[in-house]
Nucleic acid binder design. Structure first.
Lengths: 393, 393
DNA sequence: TATTGTTTGTTAGTAGAGTTTACTAACTTC
DNA sequence: GAAGTTAGTAAACTCTACTAACAAACAATA
């Protein structure tokens, strides 16, 4: 009886009749510490082994503090001592420390290839140590999920050092919590892929769209600039954007979805989405191959093929010129089958893009192919884990 | 003699033959404190007056810490006590504190209007307390600078409370240091406007492009989303973008410069930049007025005017569809003369934009006019100061 | 060869930031 | 009046990075 009365009272006078829920994240001293630990890892990861004293000079922290940070990282297994530097100079010889390149590994997964799931064990520098594949037949959505989980744990077993986690690049739209909102290829809808893999493997997992993963790889390993778009041409056309050094996610987690933007003002082919003139009708690998096959049957096959490729490049540039202009991007990267993209197509993109932007000198945007397009998603997925677990980019 | 020898030695063995310059900014405990102080100001600014205890619940910091933060802010003059809350409930009555809305003011300047410089004194809520203007004749670049400096100090004299600083929205490209790289209207080239105004007035100053200032105003006062583009239509066409809650600056500080992007694949009028089909040839106020004047002389003036406006709207949507799609923006805002933009033009933008994007339900992007287009740059310039000086957005 | 100067890394002690614990003040409810 | 609730503060503790001082280990030099 009393308890009930109490509850009533405390309900009635619950604090916050004005309802301010806790949203903002205040900074505690330990957050600063975590940030500085990341800074040490990041510096070692990108600049290579160095002494504590040199870290101190680089970071602007005292030698004492850096010593303390480093010993914590050594305890955690993130950093190792490599022994004395052989540099010749006065003073006590330096002890080199480095991020634990031998003792830490990552799993990357690429679900965006045509009818095959791919996975790999990678080291911290993005080198692929072991590769695995799994063919897909005409499986249902549920069955594909099962295969992904199996592949993930098989890959984890192949690791030869401590695993930091699993990164996944998947087709479709993925929200910030790692839920695949929609992936038409697999007939997925609201599949919580991240938590599924975490539960199945017990490893920290990150899930992103495949093109987003790819642009991460380019940004970290390919010397990408802080204002970049990477267009991934495969079964469809997708893209990932880095704006001001951070990945653009979009209001509905759908940033980069440019396959069904209408290009130009002169019609075009009918798209399966119902509209005409979508970028995909020119630019996807199936569309290109179909057009090239037709060209091969024409009286002048070579010339016709060139026209097909040039026109595709032009269309891509027409679609992207406003994006490059509005965001003042300094880089446009194409990733996909080299035999289709290199040559006339790339030239046409470069030429058309410049002709549709305000001419400035030197040209503000460089257009190129991604190196290592085959493995770019695997490596990008690995980068996501490094960033998340080590604060390394 | 000895000193010279010493120098030689220490030169020869200078630390860092590998050259790691200090670039990264480590986090000190005081940085965390500064962040939390900003968090208090920001919460009060956006949610209004509340008690220390309520702040504590909102921020997730203890009451003790919040008390300490608040007393520091009261000492600095950023926050004031308002007296007891009159809320009726058990317990000790709360003492409301609020950001010092009466005691702090800001100067905003808008240099982007046609042949007039504008300035205003504003309060922390973006209300304009006092306005000033200065006509421009055919002045040279140097003379315009002089006028700007004079207007700035005159405005500062009109303030009736402590001034936090000066914000400026100017045409042209402005880098992160507040240097106007190029502004064709004023024939400016590398004018260090920020430091000029700071030196002349002694007040902290921030300089941005006018459209960038405008999108800040919309984002803060207009309930703008975290993924927005605002297109400002005046003598030219410019835009400002908010991507993931942060302003896009671009690799060369030129983000938002969309006036000379080629639109469509069917030619268009000759632009003074030398290309054909630039967005400005359809969308700038002078272009629209010229086309409307021609329409007025046609057999069916009203219908012709509608066609002109609709076509302009279509062109804008054609240019922006790839941007909205690639960034997954949730909002497109137009700012400019309401008599031109409202009606057929806005309708055409909305319709064309949706028809060129992958159809989703509900529509992922809302298209609307900025409220208060007249003063949006002044208010946006003020927001920049609030953000910089108080960490308030 | 002994001395001087340089550089690294560590120990000891201190200042700042936020937390927990415990208290007083000032209400409402019963 | 007694009981319960909420706001705000004081004291003691923890964590973080800093300054000061020092030993170790080297090169250069007299």
């Amino acid at each position: 009886m009393e308890a009930i009365r109490d509850r009533q009272v405390s309900d009635r006078y619950r604090p916050g009749s004005r309802r301010t829920q806790r949203t903002s994240a205040a900074t505690l001293p330990s957050d600063g510490r975590a940030h500085n630990l990341s800074l040490v890892r990041q510096t070692l990861h990108s600049a290579g082994a160095m002494s504590r004293a040199e870290l101190s000079r680089t970071l602007g922290l005292t030698r004492v503090t850096v010593s303390d940070l480093v010993s914590e990282l050594i305890e955690r297994g993130h950093v190792v001592e490599l022994g004395q530097s052989d540099e010749v100079r006065p003073g006590k010889p330096a002890i080199l420390v480095d991020i634990n390149r031998q003792g830490l590994q990552v799993i990357g997964m690429d679900l965006a290839e045509n009818s095959v799931l791919r996975a790999a064990v990678l080291d911290l520098d993005g080198n692929i140590l072991h590769r695995m594949e799994r063919e897909l037949a005409e499986e249902t959505g549920q069955e594909v999920i099962r295969q992904v989980l199996e592949l993930a744990s098989e890959a984890a077993e192949r690791a030869t050092a401590t695993l930091l986690g699993i990164g996944v690049g998947t087709p479709g739209i993925v929200n910030a919590e790692g839920v695949v909102t929609t992936a038409p290829n697999f007939e997925w809808k609201d599949v919580p892929l991240r938590s599924l893999i975490e539960d199945h493997t017990g490893l920290p997992t990150l899930v992103s769209n495949d093109a987003d993963a790819a642009v991460h790889a380019h940004h970290t390993f390919g010397g990408g600039s802080d204002d970049t778009v990477l267009v991934k041409i495969g079964r469809g056309v997708g893209s990932g954007l880095i704006v001001g050094g951070r990945r653009a996610r979009g209001a509905h987690s759908a940033a980069g979805e440019i396959g069904h933007v209408t290009v130009g003002t002169d019609g075009g082919a009918m798209c399966k989405c119902g509209k005409t003139g979508c970028l995909e009708t020119w630019m996807s690998v199936p569309s290109l191959e179909r057009a090239l096959a037709e060209a091969a049957a024409s009286p002048q096959p070579e010339a016709a093929a060139g026209v097909v490729l040039r026109e595709a490049g032009e269309r891509l540039a027409i679609a992207l010129a406003p994006v490059v202009g509005a965001l003042d991007l300094s880089e446009l990267v194409l990733s996909g089958p080299r035999e289709l993209l290199a040559g006339p197509l790339l030239d046409a993109v470069r030429q058309t893009l410049l002709s549709r932007l305000l001419h400035r000198d030197p040209s503000p945007v460089s257009v190129r192919l991604a190196d290592d397009a085959e493995d770019i998603v695997l490596r990008g997925a690995a980068v996501m884990v490094l960033w998340n677990q080590l604060g390394v980019s």
